[in-house]
Amino acid sequence: MFYPNSPQTSPQLTQIPYGQQYAMMQRQIQQPYHPFATTEPQARLYPYHYQGPIQQEQGGFITQQSTAASPQYVQMRVTPVDQSIMSGYPNQTANGSSSSSFNYNIHPQQQQQQQQQQQQLRHHAMPVGSVPLQDDRYRKQLIVNYLAPDVTSTDLHELFSRFGELDGARIIYDKQTNMSKGYGFVYFCHAEDAKEAVERMSGYEFHGKWLKVGYSTNPLNIVPSNSSPYVHAGSRGAAG
């Protein structure tokens, strides 16, 4: 039997160049792979992502010199942007860049009308829970959420009447099932009393439920100042 490094198959040491006398086997001759043993700084910083320098080929596509990437890492192929796409944008300079302001050559009167329309939209648009300043009635009506099913309009009136005089209180019921929808409205005579009720009743436990109280901004629920107070009856038909 002959071994790869046996004296019968191995040459004389004098015939082997210096430095390879003890590297006779194939696994010894093959050098191990060192990912950080390279002179390129990109490979030292990113050993798993770097795959060699990027070269520009004919046709405008950018390719990489090395083989496919590892399945664990996804390499994105980048193509140059066609400058003709950006030619339609206004205020574009000769080098292809555009300024931040756009001039669509709008007539001054049209621009003024658009600004007025935007101001009107901001004036009428009102986020949930906010209180408008032009109508004091919005500051007097509250919406009470997360009410228990057994709470009546009379219970709601008695709960909030300790903060001040009320114009009314009612629970909203479903017309088909005649069941409470879980929320109601309270109408105060003074805005200061309503503000105190919002601050003190939010998070209050009532009939096993934690109440959420806020201003009601729905104009359909506003009680006119010259109208008669609501009837605080315990029956659902009268309260709904």
Results as ranks from 00 to 15, higher is better:
I62G: 04
T93A: 06
N226Q: 00
A37C: 07
Q112Y: 12
P47R: 07
G208A: 03
Q117N: 12
A194V: 02
K212A: 07
I172G: 01
V81R: 08
G19L: 07
Q117T: 12
G184F: 01
L13I: 02
P17Q: 11
H207M: 14
V144F: 14
Q20A: 12
K175T: 09
S6R: 06
V213Q: 15
Y46M: 15
F185R: 02
Q141W: 01
Q116R: 07
P47H: 06
A94M: 02
D193A: 10
V78P: 07
M24P: 08
L159W: 01
D174Q: 02
Q21L: 12
L121H: 07
Q72R: 05
E199C: 06
I54Y: 11
S98K: 01
K140H: 00
V198M: 12
Q115T: 03
T154Q: 00
T217E: 04
G52P: 08
T14V: 06
T67M: 04
M126E: 04
P32Q: 09
Y3D: 14
G234S: 13
S130H: 07
I85C: 10
I143K: 05
K175S: 08
T14F: 12
M24D: 14
S100K: 11
I29N: 00
T217L: 02
M179V: 05
N178T: 06
I171K: 02
I16P: 01
F36C: 14
S161Y: 06
S130W: 00
P224Y: 05
T79Y: 14
Q42V: 03
R77F: 11
Q118I: 10
L147D: 04
Y173H: 05
R77D: 03
A233D: 13
K209A: 05
E158N: 13
A148E: 10
D135N: 00
R162H: 07
G240T: 08
G208P: 12
K175F: 12
N178I: 08
N221D: 04
G164L: 06
Q28L: 07
R77T: 05
I143C: 10
Q134K: 04
Q115S: 14
R77N: 15
L13N: 05
P35S: 11
G237Y: 14
R139Q: 10
M126R: 02
G240H: 15
L133M: 08
I143P: 01
Y215Q: 08
S10T: 02
P17H: 07
L156Q: 13
L156E: 02
H190G: 06
I54M: 15
A239C: 05
T154R: 06
V78C: 01
Q51M: 05
P17I: 14
S97P: 04
S161G: 05
F188V: 14
M76I: 14
I85V: 04
F188W: 15
P149C: 00
A69K: 11
N145R: 06
R27H: 11
G214F: 05
G88H: 13
A238Q: 14
P4T: 09
T217I: 02
Q64P: 11
V186H: 07
L166G: 08
V198F: 02
A239N: 05
Q83L: 14
S97L: 02
S84H: 13
I85A: 09
T79I: 12
D150G: 11
Q111N: 12
I171T: 06
Y146A: 00
M179A: 02
I172W: 07
P80Y: 02
R27L: 14
A194I: 13
G129T: 05
N221E: 02
Y50M: 00
Y50R: 05
Q12L: 07
P11T: 03
D155T: 04
V81D: 06
M86F: 12
Y138H: 05
G184P: 15
A69E: 12
L211A: 05
Y173P: 06
K175Q: 09
Q134R: 01
K212N: 02
N105E: 00
P132H: 08
R27S: 12
N103I: 09
F61V: 02
Q110N: 06
Y187M: 05
V74Q: 14
Y73M: 00
Y89R: 06
D193S: 14
H123R: 01
V81K: 03
H157D: 03
I222M: 03
G88R: 07
Q115L: 10
V213E: 00
G59Y: 14
K140P: 09
D174Y: 06
V128D: 03
M126Y: 15
D135C: 01
A197G: 05
G208T: 05
P32D: 07
F102V: 12
T67P: 05
F102E: 13
Q120I: 14
Y146F: 10
V78A: 04
V151L: 04
K209E: 06
Y50I: 03
Y215I: 04
Q119W: 12
T67S: 05
P35A: 02
Y215R: 06
V198W: 13
